[in-house]
C-alpha cells in the first residue's frame, strides 16, 4: 500500500467512501452466488452430481465451448495480429463489427445464426449434404457459442500482439526470418499470455451462453438450457443444485488454467 500524503497516517475520507461503495458492488456479485451455494443441501448436490442428464449436459457444454474456441482461434488469432500491426481501409469498421456480438441481444444473435445455418439456407443445406446437422446438433451449439463469444478472444489477442514491441519483429525479419517464422517464434510466444487469457474468456463465455444456444439447438441440451428447463418445469429448488454443480466445474477449470498460465515463464 502506498500513502499519498505523508502528514496524516489515517485514511483519506474519500478513499474510505470509495472502499465502501466498491465493497457494496463486490457484495452484489458474491451474495447471490453464495446464497445459491448455501441454499443447496449437500444431499441435493451429490444427487445432482450423480444425475447422468446433468453430467452429460456439463460434458457437452465443456467440449462444445472448447471446440468453438479452438476452431475460431485459427482465424481469430491471425486477425488479431493484423488489427494490432497493420493499417488497412475500414479498420475501424472491422473493429466495430467484431464487437457487435457483445452488444446485440443474444436471442437476436440466435435468430441470426439460425437463419444462416437452417437446413433451408445455403450453408445449412450444404452441411446436411455432408452429414453435418447444425440445427438441433452439436455443430449448431458450437456455432451459436462461437458467434457470441468470439470478440473476447480477438480483443484480448489484439491487445497482446500490440504489446509486443514491433522492433522485435523487425529485428527478427532483419535476421533473415520469414514473416511466418517471425509470427510463430516471436509474436505468438510473446503474446501468448494475453491470447490464453482470451481463449479462457471465450471458452467461459461460450459455456455460459443461453439465449443463442437455446434458439439454435435446444437439444442436445447444454447446462445453461438444462438449468432453465428445470427451473421452468420444477422451480428454483430443482434448478439450483444444477447451477451450483456447473458453477463448481467452471471455477475448477478456470483456476487450473490460471495456475498453469502463471507457472510458465
Amino acid at each position: 500500500m502506498t500513502r499519498s500524503n505523508s502528514h496524516s497516517p489515517s485514511f483519506e475520507p474519500t478513499h474510505l467512501v470509495f472502499a465502501g461503495l466498491g465493497g457494496l458492488v463486490l457484495l452484489f456479485i458474491i451474495a447471490p452466488l453464495a446464497s445459491m451455494v448455501l441454499n443447496s443441501p449437500i444431499a441435493d448436490l451429490t444427487d445432482t452430481a450423480a444425475d447422468t442428464e446433468v453430467l452429460n449436459s456439463i460434458l457437452l457444454t465443456l467440449w462444445t465451448a472448447l471446440t468453438a474456441t479452438l476452431l475460431i482461434s485459427l482465424g481469430a488469432i491471425p486477425l488479431a495480429w493484423l488489427l494490432a500491426r497493420k493499417q488497412f481501409p475500414m479498420k475501424r469498421l472491422v473493429s466495430a463489427i467484431i464487437d457487435l456480438p457483445v452488444v446485440i441481444p443474444h436471442s437476436a444473435a440466435g435468430i441470426a445464426v439460425l437463419g444462416f445455418i437452417a437446413p433451408n439456407s445455403v450453408i445449412g443445406g450444404a452441411a446436411e449434404h455432408v452429414g453435418i446437422r447444425f440445427v438441433g446438433g452439436a455443430a449448431g451449439i458450437i456455432t451459436a457459442m462461437a458467434f457470441v463469444s468470439v470478440p473476447f478472444l480477438i480483443n484480448a489477442a489484439r491487445d497482446g500482439f500490440a504489446a509486443v514491441p514491433e522492433r522485435l519483429e523487425k529485428a527478427a525479419l532483419s535476421l533473415g526470418a520469414s514473416p511466418t517464422r517471425v509470427f510463430f517464434t516471436i509474436s505468438l510466444p510473446l503474446a501468448w499470455r494475453s491470447i490464453l487469457s482470451g481463449v479462457v474468456m471465450m471458452w467461459a463465455r461460450g459455456m455460459s451462453e443461453f439465449g443463442a444456444v437455446a434458439i439454435v439447438a435446444y437439444h442436445p441440451i447444454v447446462t445453461s438450457v438444462l438449468i432453465y428447463e428445470r427451473f421452468g418445469a420444477y422451480g428454483l429448488k430443482y434448478a439450483r443444485p444444477v447451477a451450483v454443480v456447473f458453477l463448481g466445474v467452471c471455477l475448477l477449470f478456470f483456476v487450473v488454467v490460471r495456475l498453469l498460465s502463471r507457472g510458465k515463464k
Binding site: 514491441p165 522492433r167 522485435l168 523487425k170 529485428a171 527478427a172 525479419l173 532483419s174 535476421l175 533473415g176 526470418a177 520469414s178 516471436i186 510466444p189 510473446l190 515463464k265
Partner: peptide, 18 residues
C-alpha cells in the same frame, strides 16, 4: 530483407526476451 546482407542492431538492442 532476408537477402540484403544487412545486419541491423537497434539502439535498445531488441533482444528476444523469451
Amino acid at each position: 530483407i532476408q537477402k540484403r546482407g544487412m545486419g541491423l542492431v537497434y539502439q535498445n538492442q531488441a533482444l528476444f526476451p523469451h
